[in-house]
């Protein structure tokens, strides 16, 4: 199996790791968002979904470990490639300007992946410590999942941080999705605009979808 290691440790191989794990994590994001949207259907449905999920004593840990693994691979490869990429230019430029046509944002998503990645990582840590490990507010342990979401998200500061995190995540996947297609070799003049539209839509759904929850909790369920 040395050829696998060889293949995935080359520059293109590492890109493939980023693309495959990234797309898989996007799949998780979609599922996670889908589940969370049940918040808007009603407390009963949401609680039911959460309980069903947590009752999976075998599958859930496997999924969690799998997710963790994907995430670690994505992260480690990102750090490694970033360090290598920086080493490829030991002396920087005095002046730098893009020759790309100007986009709608100050900096294109592709040029700030490492930055948005760090924000997403911090957001994720916060999110896990809030919802999974209940570190900031241990009292929520006894609440139903629906109430727990309400209580945790309605804090204005939390809401703001979560919204920022969601948009960073959206900006990250805006480049991530189309970049993954390119890395996997999917580039065809006929479909390129479709891929672009798909990743833009996905990024929008992720950013707006996830940031809607703290807004909802804050707006409608404040104490």
């Amino acid at each position: 199996m040395s050829w696998v290691i060889k293949a995935f440790s080359s520059s293109i191989g590492k890109k493939l790791v980023m693309a495959i794990t990234g797309l898989a994590l996007c799949g998780f994001l979609a599922a996670h968002l889908g589940g969370n949207l049940l918040l808007y259907v009603g407390a009963e449905q949401y609680n039911h979904y959460a309980e069903a999920l947590h009752s999976q004593k075998l599958l859930l840990p496997i999924a969690e470990v799998g997710l963790l693994l994907l995430f670690v691979m994505h992260l480690v490869t990102a750090v490694r490639t970033t360090l290598e990429n920086r080493a490829a230019r030991p002396i920087g430029y005095e002046m730098r300007q893009s020759k790309l046509p100007p986009g709608p944002f100050l900096k294109p998503a592709s040029s700030v992946m490492y930055g948005t990645g760090i924000v997403v990582l911090l957001f994720l840590l916060l999110h896990l410590s809030d919802f999974k490990f209940e570190l900031r507010n241990p009292a929520v342990e006894s609440e139903t999942p629906f109430a727990k979401a309400q209580i945790l998200l309605r804090d204005p500061l939390t809401a703001i941080v979560y919204i920022i995190g969601s948009f960073a995540l959206g900006y990250h996947v805006l480049h991530g999705v189309q970049s993954a297609f390119q890395t996997l070799g999917f580039n065809h003049p006929k479909y390129n605009s479709g891929v672009k539209t798909l990743s833009t839509l996905f990024a929008l759904v992720v950013a707006l979808g996830f940031s809607s929850f703290p807004l909802w909790a804050w707006a409608f369920h404040s104490k």
């Binding site: 890109k15 020759k99 790309l100 592709s110 480049h175 390119q182 890395t183 003049p189």
Partner: peptide
């Protein structure tokens, strides 16, 4: 050399317009 992060700056800078389609 560093790795590709699909920023497309290369294509924009290429004086003969080599497309990133080739990278795919």
């Amino acid at each position: 050399f560093g790795g590709c992060t699909n920023t497309n700056e290369c294509e924009a800078a290429c004086p003969v317009g080599i497309s990133v389609e080739n990278i795919a």
